[in-house]
Design a protein around this nucleic acid. Sequence first.
DNA 1: CTGTTAGCGCGTTCAC
DNA 2: GTGAACGCGCTAACAG
Lengths: 335, 335
Amino acid sequence: MTVTIYDVAREAGVSMATVSRVVNNNPNVKPQTRKKVFEAIERLGYRPNAVARGLASKKTTTVGVVIPDISNAIFAEVARGIEDIANMYHYNIILCNADKKKEKEIRVVNTLLEKQVDGLLFMGGTVTEEHVQAFKTSSVPVVLCATTDEKKEFPSVDIDHEKAAYDAVETLIAKGHRSIAMICGNLQDLSNGYARYQGYKKALENHGIALREEYVRVGNYRYESGMEIMEYFLGLREKPTAVFSATDEMAIGAIHKLQDHGLKVPEDISVISVDNTRMATMVRPQLAAVAQPMYDIGAVSMRLLTKLMKNEKVEDNIVVLPHELIMRNSVQDRS
Amino acid sequence: MTVTIYDVAREAGVSMATVSRVVNNNPNVKPQTRKKVFEAIERLGYRPNAVARGLASKKTTTVGVVIPDISNAIFAEVARGIEDIANMYHYNIILCNADKKKEKEIRVVNTLLEKQVDGLLFMGGTVTEEHVQAFKTSSVPVVLCATTDEKKEFPSVDIDHEKAAYDAVETLIAKGHRSIAMICGNLQDLSNGYARYQGYKKALENHGIALREEYVRVGNYRYESGMEIMEYFLGLREKPTAVFSATDEMAIGAIHKLQDHGLKVPEDISVISVDNTRMATMVRPQLAAVAQPMYDIGAVSMRLLTKLMKNEKVEDNIVVLPHELIMRNSVQDRS
DNA sequence: CTGTTAGCGCGTTCAC
DNA sequence: GTGAACGCGCTAACAG
């Protein structure tokens, strides 16, 4: 039923070794025989079996990607970067959502390894000791993408989340704001939760502004969450004059909550965030944000992985990509 | 170096067939031997090689997904539905972006087939005769997801795009609008381009409203495109009183362009679209839209594919999921 | 319940 | 420049 390399060999009147050479672009084949083989392939509609090839060669040209949630715009953009570079180097991607659930993450890492992927990209989750153990059983390279492990044992590509948050808050301070509230992510979440909160804290500290407990609330990254927390801030006796959100989506929720209350952004309250997803330009006022280069994080981490898979020398295993403040109309001087 | 089923067999003092049985949960193994084998597996850190298994069993428990662009919110949501159901049935997903480029689509279909996927999900592109030919060379089932082929030769899961557009436009008409402009998608694009335009046309026709050439402009699905086209409509001598957009993102661009001109939505101009992405609730005013059940399209198509892969009887190969009008504040009566 | 024996389709020496 | 033969790690009959 299915046509194999052997059928092609017979049809072309050569051995299967020769067919293999032709298919794999091995130069040691006379042009004429090459032609014969190609014709036989065409005639028979032969399609090489990558599974058999993988078994024989111990390479699958496939990499595993574990992602928190592909329907999240941030991760989707990172994934796009990964896929583009993978494609460029002729790798395919096995994509697994793991929802930042440790058990699921470790489970998919194992099934990916069973599938003999040539490399693994672990994206955006918190890396615990258990993760480290799982990664260490891997015989193929692992790259952390949009996250890092505490001990920096593994190659990774990410931004400096704390510094990004720091810069966002400092921007507010430079504009004269002293009452700055923060909409946080989950503090168990090292990168966009804890680290961004730390950046907020340090920026206040370094500028002699006292941290006020009631100015910090933890959200779940969703739009609605931003609205609810903004509602809470508006109920405070001393309202903040500016709000720093750990993510765009919550920031936009906050902006709309303000507008729903008849308040003006940025005249009454300024809003800034970290991320700079496409949505940031799709609100009025447009959202100022510290931009995280999502596509690049994906692309660079995949590029790094290809080098690791080829055993190429890499100078720097831990890459920290730059972030950048994108000023827009949601922030204004506090005069 | 790598530990195989044979090593485990020796360690446990059984044959490799027995190891294979316990690994595959074959009931025909004495509990005690099963235990011995598990211990040996544990001791050796054995991990089954799915590639070898795939070669022997001719099943990879992997399905290929060709997607236009994973960073597009619509497709990402569909992909999430696919992945969830795949995961439920213990399949993994090889994801390939193809940007709606025919050559690339056909190329990835072929590499996916070479990788011996157990099934193929083709998402969101236009299905040409060449696609049909490519699909026909497949020995595994193919399901079209969020698209269909003209001749309905292949199983598919989609909504009725024409009817969805029709319903949106009719809603406007029912509210008293007669000057209704449309921001289209690419007309080569069968589903969200051509079909939605047809729906617009028929709705006008059936209600005795003449189609005006200057009221129809083709966009590229992006926010900016919606803005530009709205700008154009505003330059018309007779401005429309309502705008129907083929997608959310362009609709939101249109809304913001109106607001930038100091016009009010919906007081001055109403806006409605098809899609109902999460963004639709993240604008002010919130965007009325005919909802397309994206997650479900993915989930149902993957479910259908699992049935096909198991050679189960399926009553209906062509499933058309219902759409639904979600009325929000971007539309108002024309009084 | 368990072991033996063939392949699965291909890459890769090693001769010729 | 080309062919023969082996093995990759596992599943699937078939015996026993």
